[in-house]
């Protein structure tokens, strides 16, 4: 669905991407993780045609995103971290925007709003940031675009809304849709993500499926880490240590994205070795 080859991108003098290659397939939810300013939002904006690469190619659904053709735009929706909604009622917003999206479903939109518990009688400007974000997410999902890009979607949502968001998003995933979520708040989306891509210093540091990660890494909690070897990352807690270790014993442990991220960023070589070595076998 998305094929990025040798992407170079810079903001004037600040280099963001230096020849990355990536691909994203339909039917999965991708988590894009990385430090502040590493270019997660930039990548999303390159994918939807808001920014143009300095070199390299991006192919999305067979289109060059930079051309911003209507046929491309009606099959891609971006939910930016900071967004704009006009000062109109929800009904009017839908009346104005939905006709541009061929696969928009009014029934689904209403269901999502119900799930999100959004007061539909208010105008968009009268709503809180979180409520507006929920309207935008509901609209984005109801557009049924093949590609949905979300930049920090859980920012500004309260605890209950985050649960609603996970539930709604899980229900919206299907084999024809690709969802890419850029986030810092990995805990919010842990249960949703199928693939993890970690971006750092203009490079793709790590890109693996959750299945692959859980087969190669074990996420453990131990009070006696002395028995453990090859620790990739450890974090002291009040009652012991949270550890990331190679999954040599084929254990089934739940992937902790936060620990994974820290392990990859602090120990990239070893993590890469584990995945490269195993894939050769």
């Amino acid at each position: 669905m998305i094929d990025i080859q040798n992407l170079h991108f810079a903001y004037k003098k600040k280099k963001v991407y230096d020849g990355i290659s990536l691909s994203f397939q339909a039917g999965y939810v991708y988590g894009l993780l990385g430090k502040n300013g590493t270019g997660k939002s930039t990548l999303l904006r390159c994918i939807c045609g808001l920014l143009f690469p300095d070199a390299g190619t991006i192919d999305v659904l067979g289109f060059n995103p930079a051309e911003r053709k209507p046929a491309f735009l009606q099959d891609v929706f971006i939910v930016p971290e900071e967004f704009y909604l006009p000062d109109v009622s929800i009904q009017k917003y839908v009346r104005c925007n939905a006709p541009f999206y061929a696969k928009f479903s009014q029934r689904e939109f209403e269901n999502y709003l119900k799930e999100f518990d959004v007061p539909v009688q208010n105008t968009l400007q009268q709503m809180s940031y979180g409520q507006k974000k929920k309207v935008l997410i509901a609209f984005a999902l109801a557009c049924n675009t093949s590609l949905l890009l979300m930049d920090e979607p859980s920012n500004g949502l309260d605890i209950l809304s985050k649960t609603q968001f996970r539930k709604v998003l899980a229900g919206a995933v299907n084999e024809n849709k690709c969802i890419i979520i850029s986030t810092h708040q990995v805990k919010d989306l842990e249960t949703l993500i199928d693939f993890v891509t970690i971006v750092d210093e203009g490079k793709i540091l790590f890109s693996q499926s959750i299945d692959e990660i859980s087969s190669k890494l074990a996420f453990k909690f131990s009070q006696d880490k002395n028995n453990m070897s090859n620790i990739l990352y450890e974090e002291q807690t009040l009652s012991g240590s949270a550890l990331v270790i190679p999954n040599d014993d084929d254990e089934s442990t739940k992937v902790d994205l936060e620990l994974l991220y820290k392990a990859v960023v602090t120990n990239p070589q070893m993590v890469r070795q584990i995945f490269t070595h195993s894939s050769k076998i």
Binding site: L50, R68, V76, F100
Partner: peptide, 11 residues
């Protein structure tokens, strides 16, 4: 924010 809203509209 407004620019993203405007540019990504399918037209």
């Amino acid at each position: 924010d407004k620019g993203i809203y405007w540019l990504t509209l399918p037209a």
